[in-house]
Structures are given as structure tokens and as C-alpha cells.
Design a protein around this nucleic acid. Structure first.
Length: 642
RNA sequence: GCCAGGAUAGCUCAGCUGGUAGAGCAGCUGAUUCGUAAUCAGCAGGUCGGGCGUUCAAAUCGCCUUCCUGGCUCCA
């Protein structure tokens, strides 16, 4: 750890060696040892040939993983003690904590969790030692058969191999790779959080187990901080802030996954849509618009009927079946097909804010982030194969410009061919390569998700995170060589022959609903000035300034600023508080002094106080603030209600 | 869809083991004319998510259903 040299006697344990080489304080903080890439229990003897042995600190990422994993064993011990009939399955460490899945007849209740936690604390109090042992497969099988732990037998069959390691502390022994902390006394900062159903091996067809989630840290202080962070994130939750700021609501009678947009929320949407329409036109897209329902035959032809029928809404009238669109591509292709296209016409880029309906399973609905009716900023790019890469780069650049405008960090993932898919291997390879090359040309980092592509082609997904660090896909760029085939899209080439174009599906914000949900959390409801539904509010001190306030309001409104005047018979502090809670960027206070001099006293929502200025100056300041984010990115945009 | 938990006034919540509802804020009315996060007083507001049942009696117990929440599975 400190580069100290220690003469180790043969067969000495990692713990003994580290104790020698480290100060008492340092050693106390060590949970496991590391030799090269290998993690070792402190009780394990130093392996032959290991020349550099490091101590892994409790607070490090690796250290926390070990603590969380050990805490999951601690929990399993407590569960087995309280509920001996429960069968254990798996219990890994995860981000910020751990879980363990149990097969148990009855559901665990919140009271059970309390009891389990109390039992865990008792085990910590008796400071039991974690010991590792090894068994060959027959021995191990006999052991777990005797314990009645059938899931462990299944796991061993899966893993194969002749030897298994087991970890025991107190009465509880688990099949486990390790490593673990040395004593239960080292686990002192954890909390059980929730119970949830989880399928054995993540497969819907298997039995549903009960998963208990918990969080664990290296110190009570770190635990407390984490719990506070969760509280903080809850305050930013768009499901709380949205209705609070009067942006949207839902209603039981409307149905699950359906959003009602109130005036302020609808205004924010309108601004976003207006910005996007203008930006698309600048970047060589055409605006198009298709109908909400299309005949079922069309969905059969596209393959959606076969692949996604169970997620589509249908309706019938005059003995004609219609599908409510879950995607916008069909209309766009039919627009393309409305006349003969030359190679000179390509690329063609059709853009639409398309409202789509998808019957998402009831359990997945989640605020604005997963709904059944939403608007996509959808485009279809139809191009020659030689233009494919350039088009992908164009879209990726567009995505980057927009994400930077909002200040989002994002991750890119490429998804390759899934099992259930159509098209030739050659097409898939070519398209996947084009996606990869484009991201390389953009200098983006990306991960590869093998087999995660759409059934008709590979894709790039852009992932952003919500307040609780849950990941949501927004932008996506998908290659498609199936639909051009099925719909017989063609263009006439230089050679006078008919050729097959390539199609890209892509969205930038993705679902406007989802994007707004993430935006609300990202800004904690305090939208940037250009998006704020109300940009300024004029606050009077007493009603003798009401006339002047109305004058000020009219001056700003005439310049296109979204402004209100609060002339209610309330004290100034009351009005300031309310404006602040509504996250209105500018408060323009007018009292007798301001009325006299034709000025306003400006206060900003985060407490900044630019002070006294003329009405004109205030208007310019607001307009500049609204334009700034675009100028920074080399774009320009203004939304005006006049 | 599956497992679990929940729904009481516009909002946040109280209402013990059944005796047919209560607070604060918001709203309305009045007083107050006030300088940067809550002025005071009064008034009004709920078929306790919906339906069925048990009971002399249901917000409270049981069943069904809608919606929400935490996960799992899924996400063209």
C-alpha cells in the first residue's frame, strides 16, 4: 500500500502481511487484499508468486462492493434465522447497495424488514467471523441438498467445474465466489429499503421470488449522506414538481399513462416544438404530417402487426380495421413513394412531431417517463447507401448540439442484431459498421449492447439519467433496410436503373413527455429563461402601483416576454415567496420609488439581485438571457407569443 | 403482465382495536396599504378512488375494479 517491503513467512495470510506493512489506522480501514487483478480475503494465505500486495480500503469502489456483498450475506443469515423455510438464491452488490432474492411462501412485510434489520444488527454485535472453505462438486451438492437449498444446486449445475468456494459466518453458509470482509462487526452502516418481486434468473416464465433491497456503506456518515441524497432526489421528482408547478396532471378516468398538459406545461412543449421545427428546417429537413390511424393492412405489410400487435391499439369502423400508430414511419414512406425520386433528390429528410400510442404493460408506467400516448420528434432519412455515414454523423451532431444546449451528459450505446430479426447478415454488418464509424468520427465513447437492436436494424441509443439516477433512452438513431424493401422504396440512379435507398429512423428528444420529465428534474423545475412558461412577474408593493405595474407588463409583453403582474392585495414578501416557488426567473418589484422614476427593481429566482434599472434595460436583460444558450452553441432561436 | 404497498378537502397529512370525518396551507369574503420566502379575522370546502358484500352500524373488515408507487419482465 505504501510501497513498504515486508518479509513474509511462507503461508502467512494476506491480513498478517498487510498488518505488518500498514499503520494501525490504515489497516483498520482495509476490507480485502488485492494482488494484481485478484481480490483476496484477508484470511487467505498470500498466493505464491505474489510480490505486491495491496489493501483495499473500505471507502473505495471495490471496498464498498465487498461491504455490500457481505451485507447481503448478513441479511440472508438473518432471513434464514427468522424464516428457516425461506430458500436463498442470489445476493449480489449493486450500485449503492445490494439485494438478495428469496423463495418464500408468504410476502415479506415492512415489519419483517424491521425484524430482519434488527437481527442483522445482532449478528454485527456478535462480530462473527467470515470463513472461506472449498468443496468439490459432490461434497458441495451434498451439503446444499442437506440444507434444502435447491437453487444453489441449480447454480452449481450452471457454473460447472469441479470446485466451489463457500463462505460461512455464524450458522449461515452460502455458495459464493467472495471475497468478503473478515468479521460481521465490520458491517455497521446499512439499511433495508424495499421488497419487490423478481423472477428467478430474470425470466418471466420462472417462479417469482422476493427481492429485498438494501443500501450499505463504509460508515454511518456515508449512509446518512446517501439517504439524504435520496430525499433530495425525491424533491426533484418530476411527478411531484410537475403538478406543483401546474405543468401537467393525470386523471384516473382518462386512463393510465395518459397526460393532461395544463397551460404552462403545454406552453413549454410548444416552445420546444417550435425550436425543433425551426432547427430542423435549418438543417435540411422537411416538415410532414401523417394521420393518427392507418389501415391495419399497412401494419401487416410493415411487419409491426406480427411483431408488436399486442402493444398496439386498434379500432374498427365500417368493417374496416385500423391501427392507431405506434410509429410515424409508414406515412413518411408513403409520402416518399408519392412520386418517382432521383438520386439527385437524396437524401430526403422528413420530420414530424408525431403523436403515437403504445400499449405499455401496466406495471411499467412511470410519470412522464413511460406513458402510453406521447409525441416523438421523429424523422426518417432516406438516402443512398453511399450517403449513410454522412447522414448518421449529421444526426449525431444534431443530437450533440441539442444535448449541450440543455447541459445534459449522455452516454451512447450501439445495439447489434437480435435473435428475432429480419434482413441479411451482410446488411446488418454494413449498417452496424456505419454506426460505429460515425461515432468514432464524432469521437464519442460508446458501449456495445450485443443483440439489443430493433428487429429491422442496428441502432445507436443515447441515454440520459433522471434525478434518482435511473437511465432513460432519449435520442436514438436506427438503421432500417427492411422497410424500404417491404414498401419497395426506390430511386432512379445515374445509370437510369432503380435502386434501393437506405432508411434511418431517428429521434432527438425522443418522447417529448419523457424529455420534459427529465428536464424538470434536471433543472429542478427552474427552466432556463427561454423555456420558462412565465419569464417575469411584476410585483407591486401596494395597490397604488397597480397602474404602473400594468404599464410595465405591457411594455415587456410587447417585446415578446412572457410576463405577468401580481397586483393582489398581499405583502411583497408573500408575492416574492410565491414567485420564487413558481421558479419564475425574474421578479420586477415596483414601489413608489420605481413608479416615480419609471424603473423596476429586479430580483432573480435564485436570490441574485441585479437591482434598480429602467424597464427597457430589464427587458433587454431578459431577452439576452433567453438567447444566450443558443449563441453559446452557435445557434439562434427566439420564441415569441406576438 | 407479475409480486408487494397505497388512494381521506385543490395540496400535505391526522383519524387507536367498526359508532357515519379533522388540521395546516391554498380558495372565497372582509379588514389591513405593507419594500424582497407566508398580515389578521371570518366563511366555505369531502357520497373517505369506484362497485359489491359482512354488520344494528364501514374511511376503518372482506371481495372485485380503476389509478398511483417500488421492483421484476418488457420498451418497435
Amino acid at each position: 500500500m505504501n510501497g513498504q517491503k515486508v518479509e513474509a513467512t511462507a503461508g502467512a495470510s494476506c491480513g498478517e502481511v498487510l498488518k505488518e506493512g500498514l499503520s494501525k489506522k490504515q489497516f483498520k480501514n482495509v476490507v480485502v487484499a488485492r494482488c494484481g487483478e485478484t481480490l483476496l480475503d484477508l484470511g487467505t494465505s498470500v498466493p505464491d508468486g505474489c510480490t505486491v500486495l495491496e489493501g483495499v480500503e473500505a471507502g473505495s469502489e471495490t471496498g464498498l462492493n465487498v461491504i455490500r456483498h457481505s451485507t447481503s450475506h448478513l441479511m440472508a443469515e438473518a432471513v434464514k434465522k427468522l424464516f428457516p423455510e425461506a430458500k436463498v438464491t442470489i445476493g449480489p452488490s449493486i450500485k449503492d447497495g445490494f439485494y438478495y432474492d428469496f423463495d418464500f411462501e408468504r410476502a415479506f412485510t415492512p415489519e419483517d424488514l424491521e425484524a430482519i434489520e434488527a437481527e442483522m444488527l445482532r449478528s454485527v454485535g456478535s462480530d462473527k467471523v467470515f470463513t472461506r472453505s472449498e468443496m468439490d462438486i459432490d461434497e458441495a451438492k451434498a451439503f446444499f441438498t442437506a440444507q434444502g437449498e435447491s437453487y444453489k444446486l441449480e447454480i452449481m449445475d450452471d457454473l460447472g467445474g469441479g470446485h466451489f468456494s463457500l463462505y460461512q459466518h455464524g450458522e449461515f453458509t452460502d455458495l459464493c465466489r467472495g471475497p468478503h470482509v473478515t468479521r460481521t462487526g465490520m458491517l455497521k452502516a446499512f439499511k433495508l429499503l424495499s421488497v419487490a418481486g423478481a423472477y428467478w434468473r430474470g425470466d418471466e416464465k420462472n417462479k417469482q421470488l422476493q427481492r429485498i433491497y438494501g443500501t450499505a456503506w463504509d460508515s454511518p456518515k456515508a449512509l446518512k449522506k446517501h439517504l439524504e441524497r435520496l430525499e433530495e432526489a425525491k424533491k426533484r421528482d418530476h411527478r411531484k414538481l410537475g403538478p406543483q408547478l401546474d405543468l401537467f396532471s393525470t386523471h384516473e378516468d382518462v386512463g393510465g399513462g395518459m397526460i393532461l398538459w395544463h397551460p404552462k406545461g403545454a406552453l413549454v412543449r410548444a416552445i420546444l416544438e417550435d425550436f425543433e421545427k425551426k432547427e430542423h428546417l435549418k438543417r435540411g429537413y422537411d416538415l410532414v404530417q401523417g394521420p393518427l390511424i392507418l389501415r391495419q393492412e399497412l401494419w401487416e405489410k410493415s411487419g409491426h402487426y406480427d411483431n408488436y400487435r399486442e402493444n398496439m391499439y386498434f379500432t374498427e369502423i365500417d368493417e374496416q380495421r385500423y391501427g392507431i400508430k405506434p410509429m410515424n414511419c409508414l406515412s413518411h414512406m408513403l409520402i416518399y413513394k408519392s412520386k418517382i425520386r432521383s438520386y439527385r433528390d437524396l437524401p430526403i429528410r422528413y420530420f414530424e412531431h408525431g403523436v403515437v400510442h403504445r400499449h405499455e404493460k401496466s406495471g411499467v408506467l412511470h410519470g412522464l417517463l413511460r406513458v402510453r400516448s406521447f409525441t416523438q420528434d421523429d424523422a426518417h432519412l432516406i438516402c443512398r447507401p453511399d450517403q449513410l455515414q454522412e447522414e448518421i454523423i449529421g444526426v449525431a451532431t444534431f443530437v450533440k448540439d441539442v444535448m449541450e444546449l440543455f447541459g445534459f451528459e449522455f452516454q451512447a450505446e450501439i445495439s447489434t442484431r437480435p435473435e428475432k430479426s429480419i434482413g441479411s447478415d451482410e446488411d446488418w454488418d454494413r449498417a452496424t459498421l456505419a454506426l460505429e464509424n460515425s461515432l468514432k468520427a464524432m469521437n464519442w465513447d460508446y458501449e456495445i449492447n450485443e443483440g439489443d437492436g430493433a428487429f429491422y436494424g442496428p441502432k445507436i441509443d443515447i441515454i440520459i439519467k433522471d434525478a434518482l439516477e435511473r437511465r432513460w433512452q432519449c435520442a436514438t438513431i436506427q438503421c432500417d433496410f427492411t422497410l424500404p424493401e417491404r414498401f419497395d422504396l426506390v430511386y432512379v440512379g445515374e445509370d437510369g436503373e432503380r435502386h434501393r435507398p437506405v432508411m434511418l429512423h431517428r429521434v432527438i428528444l425522443g418522447s417529448l413527455e419523457r424529455f420534459l420529465g427529465v428536464l424538470i428534474e434536471h433543472f429542478a423545475g427552474a427552466f432556463p429563461v427561454w423555456l420558462a412558461p412565465v419569464q417575469a412577474t411584476v410585483l407591486t408593493v401596494t395597490d397604488s402601483q397597480n397602474d404602473f405595474a400594468e404599464e410595465v407588463r405591457l411594455v415587456l409583453a410587447a417585446k415578446g416576454i412572457r410576463v405577468e403582474a401580481d397586483t393582489r392585495n398581499e405583502k411583497l414578501g408573500y408575492k416574492v415567496r410565491e414567485a420564487q416557488m413558481n421558479k419564475i426567473p425574474y421578479m420586477l418589484v415596483v414601489g413608489d420609488k420605481e413608479k416615480e422614476s419609471g424603473s423596476v427593481n429586479v430580483r432573480m429566482r435564485h436570490g441574485d439581485d441585479p437591482g434598480l434599472m429602467s424597464v427597457e434595460e430589464a427587458a433587454d436583460m431578459i431577452i439576452d438571457a433567453a438567447r444566450k444558450p443558443f449563441l453559446d452553441g452557435g445557434m439562434s432561436y427566439s420564441f415569441s407569443t406576438i
